[in-house]
Every structure is written in C-alpha cells, then in structure tokens.
Design a protein around this nucleic acid. Sequence first.
DNA 1: TATTAAAAGTGATTTTCATCACATTTATGT
DNA 2: ACATAAATGTGATGAAAATCACTTTTAATA
Lengths: 239, 239
Amino acid sequence: MKNLESSNENSSFLNQLTKEDQHILLLHGTKITVREGSILFFEGEEAKYIYLLRQGQVRLSKMTIENKKFYLHLKQKDDIVGEFSLFNEMSLSMTAEVITEATLIRFDRKNLEALFTQNGDIAVAFIKLFAKNTQSTQAKFSDLLLYGKTGAYYSMLIRFANSYGTPHPKGVRISIKLTNQDLAYFIGTSRETINRMFNDLKKENIVEIDKGNIVIKNIEYLRKHLQCGKCPLQICTIS
Amino acid sequence: MKNLESSNENSSFLNQLTKEDQHILLLHGTKITVREGSILFFEGEEAKYIYLLRQGQVRLSKMTIENKKFYLHLKQKDDIVGEFSLFNEMSLSMTAEVITEATLIRFDRKNLEALFTQNGDIAVAFIKLFAKNTQSTQAKFSDLLLYGKTGAYYSMLIRFANSYGTPHPKGVRISIKLTNQDLAYFIGTSRETINRMFNDLKKENIVEIDKGNIVIKNIEYLRKHLQCGKCPLQICTIS
DNA sequence: TATTAAAAGTGATTTTCATCACATTTATGT
DNA sequence: ACATAAATGTGATGAAAATCACTTTTAATA
C-alpha cells in the first residue's frame, strides 16, 4: 500500500503469469485509449471483449428504470474489466464507464478462448483471477446484506482503503475523490444516510476529511463492527 | 423444465464437455455419498476439494456471530459445489450443508489444477461455469439491494421457479419443500415479513399453495416488478 | 474574484421492516 | 387418532432508513 498505483501490484492478474506467458497474452490483444466519460460497454449488450486495464479507472454499475444506480466495482491498473459471460453467449450484466482516462488492452473473445485451450497456464491464471473476484464480490454483498446500512458503509470504507489507500500521518487516506452520492450508489442507500453515518464516525474520531479525501483514523473500529478477521485481505477490495 | 431432475440438465457443467473430456474429468475424482444433515465444509476452513453434485441437494450459507443465517445457494444435480478459492489458497467463505442425501464426485485441488493446465477445454468449461455462477450471484444480490424486501422476495420466487419449477395447471410449481423461515434466510429478512408478502401475493391472485408447494400463477407480475427482461434466464437461478 | 453550480448538512415526516406476543393451523410420530 | 411439535397468521410497537425540504458550505469557472 505504498501509493495509489502500487496497491494492486502484487496480486494482479498479469503478475500471476511468467514473463513468457505475459508476452504471449499481450500479443493477443490490442492497446486502446479511452477518454473520461466514455462507456466501454452497456448492460444488456452482447459481450465481445475483455479488457486489461493498464491505466485509469473504470466503474462497473447496474442501472434500473427508476434511475436507481448501483455501483459494483471501481477497477484500477492491472484489473480485468469485462465479463466472462462472453464465453457463454450471455448478455452483459453491468455497464462499464471510464472515470479517468484509461489505457486498456482489448482481447477478443475468440482469440482468448483459443488461447486458453492451447495454453493451460494462462487459463488457470484466469480461473484464479476469477475466483478472487467472485469471492470478493460475494463477501461484499454479504456485508451489505447482513449488517445493515451501517455495516455496508463500514465495509465499503475498508474496501476503498484496501484498494485506494495511501499512508497518512493519522491512518489511511482514501486517495480518490468520492462524493457522498457516489458512496451511496456503492451500497444502495441515499446520500443523506451516508452523510449522517459519516458525521457519526467523525464525532467518534474514527474518520476525518483531509483535502477532500476521507482519512480513516481507526480502521480497527470498522473491522470489529463487521467481525472481520476470518476474511482474507486480498478479497476485501472495491475492485 | 420438464421435471425436477431435468431443470438443470442442458446448462450443466458436465454437458459443456465432450464425452471424452467428461470421462477424463470423472477419472480424476472420487465418488462419495453423504447423508442428510452432514456438513461438507465449513466457512473459514481451508479449501481442499471441489465437488460435482450428482444427486441430492446441498445448501450453501453464511453465518454471523449474532447467529444470523444467510442462505446463498441451493445446489442440485450437476451443480458444482465448492469454491475456487482453493486455487488461491484462500479460506472458504461459505458453509455447505447436505439437505437431502447426496452423491458427489470429489476433486482434489492439485489434481484439478494439473488437469486444467494440460486440458484447456476442461479449463474453459470451468471458466464458463464460473462466469455463469458469478453473474447469477451478482444479479441476485442486486435484486436484494435495489428493490427492497418485496423485490428480494419476488426475485427469490422467480429463481426458485427457474431452478426447481415443474409445470402446474395454473402456472409453475416450486417442487421443493420450503418454509417461510427458509425463504427468510435466503433474502435476509424475518419469517413474518415473508408471510405477509406471501399473503399479499395470494390476495392479488399471483400465487397459491398446492399440497405444500408454492405455485406461481402469474410470474409475469413478479418479473415486471423487477424489470426483468434484459436478464438472461440461465443466470436467474437459486443454485 | 464574483457568480454559479455542486456537494454537504440537517430537521421533520413517512415508509419499511424487525421484533414481540400470541392465536391458529398444519404436520408428524407413536 | 391423538398428542405434540412445527409452521403459519396477524396485530401492535419500535427502530432503521428513505424521502422531502431547505440551508450552508465548498468547488468550479467565466
């Protein structure tokens, strides 16, 4: 957790591969740059590609007709973006929005499936990646459902700290810009509720704001509330 | 959706494989029989095996300290039971309980990983299976979080109908025994709330009870409430 | 830096849901 | 078939959270 860029470095997908396999994989993709605000793909579309995010941020979300939004992931450097539904001919279940200008390697479904069939190591790396994502997502949802809105909020703070945390004299700084509304969309609540929960934590001296970022001064307090401990750190992320 | 056993048949993991690959896979596992009430594995344990369920039912759940239960999946014939965390050396996040006596093929982590590396087709089949499970779980959780308890209940009914539904003169029968308490654990609510929601639906002529099973007479009503439609049917399951 | 827009903060009100308490109905076993 | 247990049904009550309405603060930009 040295800085923003490195927080995802060791556990990343690419680093699970040997240099040679990394090279093989990258040969099968196309490098693209996508600017802020663009949509990589829409919920409901057919899945054509999987992307490896090399730079920037991509947010995955679901939207409903009543204009309710639900943010599921905030992907960063070295995360995979895209659903493996593409191998099943299922439609996409999330929308991918580029939040800060992104560089990505785009992989075509056919290429990738062929590659997996002939290179089991790369396939296994994908399975592992997938396993991690699945566990992470499920753990997040359990928190959201089992511990009420407060628990959901604490869980989210911990996850942001793990994915985007940088050291701060008083604890951990969440080094990305997040409005209360953003956070509300991440846990399916209202911005007012987020605001009230935040101010409660501030009163208890658990968090503070420093130059627009949330600083968690007592992450143990949040952990205790959720009975963290058995949950491995690597899966407690927001990406 | 001809009968209970066949509802999972075409989309099952095993059927994605050629006869030859099926044979190879089965050779790598051990057949076991486990009786009702047994626990296959506990949340927090190290993941050692993955199981292919050939007969019976296995329920996956999470438990919290305050003795709250949360049921996540109800697995049936030809479903995979076990977490792929075993490839990542992460601990298990769910408990697997045998609900009706089960026959399973048990696969050892090492065997399976070796098999994937040398047989890309099997690895790809696993990736596809995984993709399906992940989408299914995420879709379920979004329903739970976005549409309140009523939405969660409707979503659950639809999922049970898809996984365990059999034809009925008036619609679809959910052909397994489920108490209100069971359903409550599946969506994280109280049995009283389930009961009230059920009776509301009964008044509206959407559901009824026939010989102890729920019969959904107007599944479209439930669908509309959740804005189903874009969601592919195969992932709308409870397993 | 003045203006405007966006975000945060907060009380009041309403809705949703959990919990409690108890009655009634339905299953189950000997 | 009767006793007992399990599950269901339902009102009353309270807590949690959504919503509304508005003010204050902070950020963006012309």
